[in-house]
Design a protein around this nucleic acid. Structure first.
Length: 904
RNA sequence: GCGGGGGUGGCUGAGCCUGGCCAAAAGCGGCGGACUUAAGAUCCGCUCCUGUAGAGGUUCGAGGGUUCGAAUCCCUUCCCCCGCACCA
């Protein structure tokens, strides 16, 4: 037989063609509620990388598994095709973003096909075509109808050289340089379009609790991001400037507020800067919000504490951020780390007003004030030095103070900001707005959508600004001359609802077919990188909720189960182009085949864990597939001697008098292991723990190889087991599985085959395997320790029935004296000393006793596995019942542990 | 700092939820053997220490604890990774 492996290129191309021919992955519109399996669609950057391969292998394997289980499956793919890299690439190559993007898509689609990913390509979507992005515009209008769109001034990163806005991620280093041209980035105030995601902050936060199919890490990251905090707003009067609102979560510490601080860009700070040089100098030169050190400048003003009436100094301080709370805070150095540090530096008073709650506190007494000179006390406790509020616990004090202070009100703050979607770029969805001198910004009417992108103009700034002809239009309201909005949308808008478009990708009069979406959504299993934990996943949840409220979608969450897949690393480091430590999927496919790449990745680790790419591992996987291929080909070619037709059927156990392990017991062993593999692999595929499922499949193949080597396999059992092994591997190695399925003479495609049926109780399987493994190990130990070079015969003797009975009794019994209880059973008592000895063993190990297989089951299991021992030691093995064996040997046998006697 | 996830034998990596069958799967690497003219592939073993009949000892980051019994449960501590963060 050949050990060259198989011709993976030929096999893979052949079955890719066959699948296409058979339309194997098509999900018809008529199906009721398919299992929706989705991988995050890629940005078409040019080529697939290993991260993509892993991501899409996971979804593909799961989709194939569900299909074999009989589900209708929806498994689509598309392209996140808008984005700045296309503009840059177009400039570099002197082409345009559209052509470049479609080239990339063609390449990547081809690579996906060569990986054997089974997508319904009839549902392919591409976000950069007007047929898609017109619905971004339409949705923008619906959001506007629902009062969820706002245009306002915002501060953005601006590169003066590229003349465009940069995302935060595109500003590099502490020096804040443009990622493209290393120009220092400036901030600019621009009119920006926002989607009011904060309107949904509470629901987005609270519904996280019910996302039980999501990893905790992602759930927690979203909670942090939304950052809801309950507290109190209240006014401090600043002389000459009136009242200023501050937000605090610790109004219970207000008696210890010894100064007041304003953000450098707070309106009052800016006002002060005009008159006060020191303040101006601080704001312009010293303030360093990114530094560790809190800096500030005294304004000479005072603020009035609304409770105590005390006048406290007002500072402008750089640790106060204008976008947190109200940009102004009451500072309590006795009970806040940062305020403490600042007070020490500026020489402000530090007063303790909360004491730790004493262990034996009666709920009323006022404890001694703690020493907060060196360290603040930041926990809740009992109020001290707080007038009438002294002696209250922090919680109660917060409630009362919020009630009692006239300007105070309970207030909830969020870290989540509204979503600024304006981008001053070409390659995105034009925001469907026209600016009219008289009417202001006006939405483009639905019937005029889509607003299509004009031809790309290679220019330094925003090409849309340069598209004079395109820009000029008329106002939809008054008909006057007007100009188009030149901002395009953040590409996260595209991806916030693309999973709905797959339901009806060609629909011309709505973004998605509502009835079908109601049936098909939510996505049952979503798989993607952790880098999207917040942005994409939060925006998608937001869109889904808005669509539920405004458009009749009957689902409020888009993704039931989420898997954040781990990274593919090389030598413990993330693969990246800049480090040059990438492994090209294309090379792997050429060298070893797609099935090898897929199988290697899936068996290397749990899908959510990082793992190291290993060329050795790939080779090993490749050899495994070659061995499997050989095994099946050789059988199909009739090169395997199989037992004749007079062979005993499985389950038709050999008669008990025949105690040597015969061929038919081997058949039983193989049949049982096959059932076990099916049951376990199925459970594990369900849980997406492909690594464990595949281990079963690989072990089964190993067993079958031994079977063929050691015995003349029973034709039906052998063929069924080969058939099962092929099907267990089909979700992950689909091409070779098809090839071997055909070789075995099966009808149809394995992709359409049923998952094999088998009943096996996992616990029993594990006990059986454990018994066999332990027994083999014991034989090895004995042979080794006793220095037996060439065993002549090995006897394995199962314990007598009464010991199983005694064990059973011991397990059930709660009597103090087990022995007397056992001796009440005449069939045990009559064993005399042996019974007493065993009884004592049981008594001594009372707590550690474990249920074993029944005696007959142990006998059968050992007989079935005897061939493994024979093969290993090249000696005949007799598996005997106690009654048939020598008493001196039997004595050592216990349930779960047969006696072993080796003759030299 | 807060939150999340980890630390297992030469390496990778299961096991931990649901304690005993765990000196701890599997793969890789290493060693020995079979096959081969040889290499490769394949197959059979070994791979913490001691041991002439299945035993004993010491191990799962460290230290305590619970338990008849801990890689597994609890507490403390150290280290690594990820996310958030002068967040009022």
């Amino acid at each position: 037989m050949s050990h060259e492996g198989y011709d993976h290129t030929a096999v893979e191309e052949r079955w890719q063609a066959a699948w296409a021919e058979a339309d194997a992955y098509r999900t018809p519109d008529e199906v009721d509620d398919p299992t929706y399996v989705l991988g995050m669609y890629p940005y078409p950057s040019g080529k697939l990388h290993m991260g993509h391969v892993r991501n899409y292998t996971i979804t593909d394997a799961y989709a194939r598994y569900r299909r074999m289980r009989g589900d209708d499956v929806l498994h689509p793919m598309g392209w996140d095709a808008f984005g700045l890299p296309a503009e840059n690439a177009a400039k570099e190559r002197d082409t345009n973003p559209r052509d470049w993007t479609f080239d990339c898509i063609d390449t990547m689609r081809g690579q996906m096909r060569s990986m054997g990913f089974g997508y319904d390509w009839d549902r392919e979507i591409t976000t950069c075509v007007p047929e898609y992005y017109e619905w971004n515009q339409w949705l923008f209008s619906r959001f506007a109808d629902a009062d969820l769109v706002e245009r306002r001034d915002a501060e953005v990163n601006w590169c003066p050289s590229c003349e465009t806005v940069l995302a935060d991620e595109q500003v590099e280093g502490d020096a804040e340089l443009c990622w493209r041209c290393d120009t220092p980035v400036e901030t600019r105030d621009l009119d920006q379009w926002f989607l009011k995601i904060t309107e949904y902050a509470d629901e987005l936060l609270e519904a996280i609790d019910d996302l039980e199919g999501w990893p905790n890490s992602v759930r927690q990251m979203q909670r942090n991001w939304i950052g809801r905090q309950y507290g109190t707003t209240l006014d401090f009067a600043i002389e000459e400037h009136g009242s200023v609102e501050a937000f605090t979560t610790r109004v219970d510490t207000i008696f210890g507020a010894t100064f007041f601080a304003l953000a450098p860009d707070h309106p009052i700070s800016e006002e002060l800067a005009e008159a006060d040089d020191a303040v101006r100098r601080f704001i312009e030169e010293e303030a360093d919000p990114d530094g560790d050190e809190p800096n500030g400048v005294e304004t000479g003003l005072t603020a009035t504490n609304p409770v105590t009436g005390e006048e406290i100094p007002v500072f402008v301080a750089d640790f106060v951020l204008s976008d947190v709370g109200t940009g102004a805070l009451m500072a309590v150095p006795g009970h806040d780390e940062r305020d403490h540090a600042f007070a020490e530096k500026m020489g402000v008073d530090i007063e303790p007003v909360v004491a730790p709650e004493p262990d034996d506190w009666d709920g009323e007494a006022v404890p001694d004030a703690p020493d907060v000179g060196d360290e603040p006390f930041t926990d809740d406790g009992v109020l001290v030095n707080s007038g009438a509020y002294s002696g209250l616990d922090s919680d109660t004090a917060r409630e009362r103070l919020t009630e009692d202070i006239e300007s105070a009100a309970e207030s909830t703050q969020y870290q989540l900001r509204d979503w600024g979607i304006s981008r001053q770029r070409y390659w995105g969805t034009p925001i469907p707005v026209v600016h009219c001198d008289d009417c202001g910004p006006v939405l483009v009417p639905d019937e005029d959508l889509p607003v299509e992108l004009p031809e790309f103009i290679n220019t330094t700034g925003n090409p849309l600004d340069a598209a004079e002809e395109w820009k000029e239009t008329t106002c939809p309201e008054c008909g006057a001359q007007a100009t188009r909005e030149t901002d395009t949308m953040d590409t996260f808008v595209d991806s916030s609802w693309y999973f709905l478009r797959y339901v009806s990708p060609d629909l011309a009069d709505a973004p998605f077919d509502l009835d079908r979406a109601n049936d098909w959504m939510p996505v049952d299993q979503y798989v993607g990188g952790i880098e999207h934990a917040v942005m994409h996943l939060l925006y998608s949840r937001f869109f889904t909720k808005v669509l539920a409220d405004e458009e009749g979608l009957e689902h409020r969450e888009p993704f039931t189960n989420l898997l954040a897949q781990g990274m593919v690393q090389l030598d413990g480091e993330k693969m990246s182009k800049s480090k040059g430590n990438t492994v090209s999927p294309q090379r792997i496919v050429e060298e070893y085949g797609a099935d090898t790449a897929r199988l290697f990745m899936m068996q290397a680790a749990q899908p959510e864990r990082d793992f190291d790419w290993s060329e050795e591992g790939v080779k090993s996987t490749h050899r495994f597939l070659a061995r499997l291929s050989d095994l099946v080909e050789e059988y199909a070619a009739g090169d395997v001697e199989t037992a004749g037709s007079d062979a005993v059927e499985p389950g038709d156990a050999a008669d008990a008098s025949d105690s040597s392990p015969d061929r038919e017991t081997i058949d039983e062993y193989v049949a049982a292991e096959t059932d076990a593999a099916v049951a376990i692999a199925g459970d594990e595929y369900d849980d997406l723990t492909f690594n464990v499922a595949l281990r079963e499949a690989q072990d089964l193949v190993g067993t079958l190889r031994s079977y063929r080597e050691h015995a003349e396999p029973h034709p039906e059992i052998y063929e069924r087991s080969l058939d099962v092994a092929v099907r267990l591997l089909a979700p992950v190695a689909p091409h070779l599985a098809e090839e071997l399925w055909e070789t075995l003479g099966r009808d149809g495609l394995v992709v359409d085959a049923d998952w094999p049926a088998a009943t096996a109780d996992r616990e029993t399987v594990e006990r059986r395997r454990r018994l066999v493994a332990n027994t083999r190990e014991d034989v090895r130990d004995i042979v080794d320790v006793a220095g037996i070079d060439d065993p002549e015969r090995i006897d394995v003797v199962v314990a007598p029935g009464w010991k199983y009975d005694a064990l059973e009794l011991a397990l059930d019994s709660d009597a103090d004296n087990l022995i007397s209880e056992l001796m009440q059973e005449s069939h045990i008592r009559e064993r005399g000393d042996a019974a007493a000895d065993y009884g004592q063993d049981l008594q001594a190990n009372r707590e550690a006793l474990r249920e074993t297989l029944a005696g007959d089951d142990e006998f059968d299991a050992l007989r079935a596995a005897a061939w493994l021992i024979e093969r290993e030691f090249d000696a005949p093995v007799r598996v005997e019942r106690a009654a048939d064996a020598d008493e001196s040997v039997v004595r050592k046998a216990e349930p779960g542990r047969p006696a072993i006697d080796i003759a030299e």
